[in-house]
Design a protein around this nucleic acid. Structure first.
Lengths: 357, 357
DNA sequence: CACTCGAATGCAATCGGTTGCCTTGACGGA
DNA sequence: TCCGTCAAGGCAACCGATTGCATTCGAGTG
């Protein structure tokens, strides 16, 4: 068995000086030996390392941080770990951070500014070397006021609005090109013969404007003249928005493009309750590409966003920024349309030019 | 705007002594004032606090930890943040920890002992006051060797095996009573007229023994004599196990009880590919109660496990243990059968006594 | 008036590594 | 033989907050 004390008793934690004593060197030498400082002879280094391993030495991060002015820790502020998209982002972020030797403190902000501010304070207290904020409720401007922009990265996996010029994301921001995603979705729909298309936005959307505009613009560019109707879901999109489904059913569009997969999937369910078949009676497109969308019934056509990759990228970018002391690079990731079963090819209508069927 | 320096420049971090100076007291007095030490007069306390607020003072957790011997930090080791069940556990854990003023370091162990051991070391370095391990790949015994049992809690949301005596969980462990869950599932099936029942176990199962035994035992106790068949899925249960479905289809049971919802949902999909209808041709029961199971098509009958609650409980239990200096309490949570659409009531067969249809 | 007592506060040690600078000793060259 | 050099390693200060103990000052007491 691996013990480190002499025998029993509440064994005291092994300190560097214990290792030093055991290796017959001073504390400073032990410290340098463990850090592979070339000033220490190879022989001594080996001796010290052996002693450390033998005693099961675990360095005290607090002491080290105090002196070194860094903690090898990253803060991740995320709305909700239960959400598939956020979970994927968190997963990618943690994975990449871990690969680089950082560990991550996660706190769920629950989309409440108060909690988010508190989280940022906690990160500051714990001396996080960098901070990533996913889908924040607070503005980028405020975020940058509260956290050194050189150590901050904003991640927007769920395509809400973030200031940027089309195609040229502002620094320190990672987002998906949702306009392009929406364009792909609409093009797919139009190519498949759909005309009367509606947009359904999820709750809490600070910003479906960009998206609904992208949808509208694409429709226009494709010569579809039908006005874009918009339905708004409220609250948690997981709960089947039965009312919403009823509202939609009242005057059924040919297709629905939803602001996210959860909403699309919930709609799939509540429309089914109303005996409305997908895709026979109505087409549905989601946005996110969460795993379940691949095995729903019908399998969901969706604009897949590389959520884990965004997390990974955020961590990598942040760490690089920390190392070089500059603001993290920005990135604009392209979503990808995945055509599955919730949309189909419509029989070409006799009169196709410009409009409502 | 909130600044703290004189003008521009890379504003230095505010230290306690800056606050002290600004309040015209010594560092020790400032420290005590902020901690509401009764030895400091109310007036001084107020002055100091005002100064701290004014300067936007953020205490250095590393320095404090070094002195105080605690970090107000919890370590959470979890296999995969992308998994719905684990995400829920993590969410509950973080939430409860946050409520109690702790922050949590999360690391994904990916079910690899090497990574898990590394994670435990990281927790030790960072001086986590407590550690929670969710569904570990390493044994409870090893875990307790590596982490002080008084600061360790094991959480088993996905009903794999953990040493315990029926109904009397060992200390420091939180788990669900999966035998009881399986019993409920099988009883429901039998009550509904199902007889030829098969068990499908997910990949990585170190331990479906308990569960399959519970299923078998319940069947016996209900007088069903049909031998329990068992199918084993391999790898990631999200990917539709087409092969598995084919294998099942070759000699279709009346019902499938699956070791988890992901598997059940994937099966739902791949059986549909084979034109096998659920619940008309076969009944399916899942285990976990992930959100999607409520809106799948058909909606999934499942044994719901209180995953977020397990996380919350783990954190609460751990924190209490830290405070009183004893091993965390154990808990055995009861899962709850939720009957939905993937099972149905079978027409009573003419000959009901004891057997295969 | 000298002295005690306690409330209010300051001094300095401490936590455990890290690091700038100094010391030691061996070796080579003049 | 003496000194310069360099490799190897030790001493002690330092990071920033906390805390045991000492100090100060004014009020109360015999």
């Amino acid at each position: 068995m691996v013990t480190n004390g002499t025998a029993t008793g509440p064994r005291r934690r092994i300190l560097l000086k214990d290792v030093a004593r055991s290796a017959n060197v001073s504390g400073s030498t032990a410290s340098r030996a463990l850090a592979d400082d070339p000033r220490i002879s190879l022989a001594t280094r080996l001796t010290v390392k052996a002693a450390a391993a033998e005693l099961n030495y675990v360095p005290n991060a607090a002491a080290r941080s105090l002196r070194m002015k860094h903690t090898l820790t990253l803060g991740l502020l995320i709305p909700d770990l239960r959400d598939p998209v956020h979970g994927q982002v968190a997963s990618g972020f943690e994975e990449e951070a871990r690969r680089s030797g950082y560990c991550v403190i996660m706190v769920a902000g629950e989309n409440e500014p108060v909690r988010e501010r508190l989280a940022l304070k906690i990160f500051a207290e714990h001396g996080a070397d960098g901070v990533a904020i996913v889908s924040s409720a607070i503005s980028p401007r405020e975020a940058r006021e509260r956290v050194d922009p050189d150590r901050l990265i904003l991640v927007q996996p769920d395509h809400s609005s973030l200031p940027r010029r089309e195609g040229v994301p502002t620094p320190g921001v990672i987002l998906t090109d949702d306009a392009s995603g929406m364009r792909a979705a609409v093009n797919h729909l139009v190519d498949s013969g759909y005309r009367r298309i509606a947009f359904v936005e999820g709750g809490g959307g600070a910003s479906s404007k960009v998206r609904s505009e992208a949808v509208a613009a694409t429709l226009r560019s494709r010569g579809v003249r039908t006005a874009l109707r918009t339905f708004a879901a409220t609250g948690d999109t997981w709960r089947a928005p039965a009312d919403l489904a009823a509202e939609i059913a009242a005057d059924l569009p040919e297709a629905l493009v939803c602001s996210d997969d959860k909403l699309a999937l919930a709609l799939l369910d509540s429309l089914r309750r109303l005996k409305i078949r997908v895709p026979e009676d109505i087409g549905i497109i989601g946005f996110d590409g969460i795993p379940f969308a691949a095995i729903s019934n019908p399998r969901l056509t969706t604009v897949a966003t590389p959520a884990p990759e965004m997390g990974r990228l955020a961590a990598a970018s942040l760490i690089r920024a920390i190392q070089v002391g500059a603001q993290p690079e920005a990135a604009l990731l392209s979503p990808e349309l995945i055509v599955r079963e919730s949309t189909r090819t419509l029989a070409p209508p006799a009169a196709r030019r410009g409009g409502s069927a």
